[in-house]
Design a protein around this nucleic acid. Structure first.
Length: 719
DNA sequence: CCGCTCTGTCATTTC
DNA sequence: TCGAAATGACAGAGC
């Protein structure tokens, strides 16, 4: 008879642990006992009510894919599936019935809620539910376990099969290992992708939807390597794993291995492709629900969207290069399998940039995606390659910074870096402020000519007036030059009316920023290179003269006096402004109207040429400045993004550390409890295990535990 | 006087 | 092919 107690205990314990650690409202739900209460309760009991509550809570999530971010949704989906998978423990109904019949209420064994679940599953019916029984952890047998190395899994294979049989001859095929659901939630990429798509496209209706369960379970059955192994396809399983501490320790292992897979490039290399594939599949379902970082990750995704939006708004060219749905959430979620939540930022970033065509179906690539593909985002936004070429940014985005999440030194260094970045940003802003004050003057209004021009017209935007009958009116009629200062000041007014830019941006090179805003927000600026407004009649748009600028007008008059005087000397019968601003046809008509000698015609053509070229030079310079300003803004935005991402990363790492500590303490508690109950069966090695587990979760601990199991195995063989 | 910025202008290229 | 625009380079004015 299968050890149903084990199944239920391990399963519910796992769910409780995951729920408790995942922050999914477990703490605020009065009906669901915290996992500590579960495991510390008498005989590790989970009452019928508790079980129902647990299940109802999960059912009650009833998350809608559109109301919850995908990861949150999917995590809840998994949890629910886990619980529901308890319905289908692959325990034959006959066995379960037999077990129920022979159950001894006194021993505290119970399958609370299981009856109902089985009823749903078409299993046992009309089975009397026990009022409140408890499930004992373990089967009263040995709590140690041996290692059955799964060669197909490589170094990580031991995680899956730590079995308890002293004699490997006793290995049996086990259908429905209670731990199966422990691993089941990570179907292969294609299946998971399908699930995700389903999740997006239809609301969750778990209650009474057997197809949903069937889908989940079948997906796992078809894809989970353990499941296949459990069913004897690859590996014969040995006995039962009735040690909850084993499960928890495995949980710790998985987390460690997750980090190891990230910090150790070998694990992601082609040589260990198999390992990586399995390891990822095994790790993902554990890690994902452990992390309460959904908000954080969601923020990250949003931040990334913001960045893309900024790039889009700042540089149309860039936007064109990134236009291939940078944050297509509907992209195949080939990455989320690995440590969904806490590296969800990486996934999001990757999804933001990974082309759909790149089919990262194999796990190796998945590993690489999670760890090293992030720089690709630079490649996609080719126009921003330079901006991203900061090695620090690349290092940040590659995820290599996640290499040693538990390394305090690293985190401290990172925090220091964040602080330095903040300081650098402040300095940057100050510098920009200083630049705008005393540095490169991007404000043309400060130049005498421009200032004079500014007084001339408030509606003299050269291109903006191109569609109107009016034309920019230069203050100096003789010259006919249209200062682009007019445009700028008009834009300033417009911007002032529009408003809506950040203060720091205002700090950052105010004038240049204004210039940038002109170009990025105003459609007419795209015609800046085709300024034909000089041909507009001056009289129609000449603004009231500002007495304040009369002196500057003299300066401009002086500047333009040369051609003007020359024109007067040659008795040119019309003003320079007309010469410059008139359209070609009118200009030719004007020339034909008067009988001019060769010298006069030459001078007129020179004046026209110079006047036009002057405007062209002004526009050209303004464009250059705007390009510089745009680049400046991009750099600043990227720096801010970098600081923000570093900060997010630090927070996430802190959360991970907390979770690990929680798991550690949990392991300790479970182990102590087991030791109390089964203390006599524990050996010195077990004690070493306990001591070992009090230390922080490290790869060292993992290796120690691994070797410890081998040692235990050898000792048992000797017996 | 020097250095810098701004501006206009020329020559040339591009559209 | 022409005209206009764009742009690099240079020079002059002004600070």
């Amino acid at each position: 008879m299968p050890d149903l107690k084990k199944y239920l205990t391990e399963g519910l314990l796992q769910v409780a642990i995951l729920l408790s650690l995942s922050g999914m409202r477990v703490d605020v739900d009065p009906y669901l006992p915290p996992f500590r209460e579960i495991i510390q309760g008498p005989s590790l009991a989970l009452t019928q009510t508790q079980f129902h509550n647990l299940r109802n809570i999960l059912d009650g999530y009833n998350l809608h894919p559109k109301s919850v971010d995908l990861d949150g949704f999917f995590t809840a989906r998994r949890l629910l599936s886990w619980v529901r998978s308890l319905d289908r423990l692959q325990v034959p109904a006959a066995d379960l019935e037999a077990w129920l019949v022979h159950r001894e209420p006194d021993n505290g064994v119970s399958i609370p809620g299981q009856v109902g679940l089985l009823e749903e599953a078409g299993g046992l019916e009309d089975v009397e539910e026990p009022s409140e029984l408890s499930m004992r952890l373990g089967n009263g047998g040995e709590l140690g376990y041996d290692v059955v190395e799964d060669q197909t899994l490589g170094p990580l294979g031991h995680m899956s099969r730590n079995l308890n049989h002293p004699d490997e001859d006793e290995l049996i095929k086990e259908e429905g290992d209670g731990m199966s659901f422990f691993w089941e939630q990570e179907p292969q990429q294609n299946v998971r992708q399908e699930q995700l798509e389903n999740a997006r496209t239809q609301p969750l209706m778990f209650n009474g939807e057997e197809e949903e369960d069937e889908f989940m379970v079948d997906s796992w059955r078809n894809t989970n390597p353990f499941h296949n192994q459990m069913f004897g396809e690859d590996l014969q399983l040995a006995g039962v794993r009735d040690d909850a501490s084993l499960a928890i320790e495995e949980c710790l292992h998985l987390i460690d291995d997750n980090f190891a897979s990230e910090e150790d490039p070998e694990l992601t290399g082609p040589g260990l492709q198999n390992v990586g594939e399995h390891a990822l599949q095994f790790q993902r379902p554990l890690i994902s629900p452990l992390l309460p970082e959904q908000e954080s990750t969601f923020n990250l995704e949003q931040q990334w969207q913001d960045v893309l939006a900024i790039m889009e708004s700042q540089d149309m060219d860039i936007a064109e290069t990134t236009g291939d749905s940078p944050l297509n959430v509907s992209d195949s979620d080939r990455n989320t399998g690995s440590m969904d939540n806490f590296i969800h930022q990486d996934v999001s970033l990757h999804r933001a940039t990974l082309p759909r065509s790149t089919d990262a179906q194999n796990s190796e690539e998945t590993c690489r995606i999670n760890n090293h593909s992030l720089p690709n985002l630079n490649l996609d936004t080719s126009a921003n390659v330079e901006a991203f070429e900061d090695s620090d940014i690349i290092a940040l985005l590659t995820g290599t910074s996640l290499a040693s999440p538990l390394d305090p030194l690293l985190e401290e260094a990172m925090l220091d870096e964040i602080g330095l970045m903040d300081l650098a940003l402040e300095e940057l802003e100050e510098q920009n402020q200083a630049d705008s004050d005393s540095g490169l003057s991007l404000d043309y209004s400060q130049s005498p000519t421009s200032t004079t021009g500014s007084e001339s017209s408030s509606s003299s935007s050269s291109s903006s007036c191109s569609s109107s009958p009016s034309s920019p009116t230069p203050m100096i009629p003789e010259e006919g030059a249209v200062g682009y200062t007019h445009i700028k000041e008009e834009e300033e007014e417009e911007d002032g009316a529009v408003g809506g830019f950040m203060p720091e941006q205002t700090k950052m090179c105010q004038s240049s920023f204004l210039e940038a805003r002109q170009f990025h927000r105003l459609p007419w600026l795209e015609h800046i290179g085709h300024d034909h407004t000089y041909n507009q009649p001056q009289s129609q748009k000449k603004p009231p003269k500002d007495p304040f600028d009369e002196s500057k007008e003299k300066v401009l008059e002086h500047l333009s006096s040369r051609d003007e005087k020359h024109a007067k000397s040659l008795n040119i019968p019309f003003s320079n402004e007309r010469i410059v601003n008139l359209p070609v046809e009118e200009f030719n008509r004007l020339l034909a109207k008067y009988h001019l000698n060769e010298a006069q015609l030459s001078l007129i053509r020179d004046i026209r040429r110079r006047g036009k070229n002057k405007l062209a030079a002004q526009n050209c310079r303004r464009r250059k400045l705007n390009v510089l300003v745009g680049l400046e803004r991009n750099v600043d935005s990227l720096r801010r993004l970098r600081v923000r991402l570093l900060r997010e990363k630090s927070e996430i790492l802190s959360s991970i550390r907390e979770i690990k500590q929680l798991l550690n303490s949990l392991y300790q508690e479970v182990y102590e409890r087991l030791r109390e109950e089964q203390g006599l069966l524990y050996t010195d090695n077990n004690f070493t295990l306990q001591q070992d587990c009090t230390s922080p979760v490290t790869s060292q601990r993992r290796s120690d535990s691994h070797s410890r199991r081998k040692l235990s195995k050898r000792q048992k063989r000797k017996k």
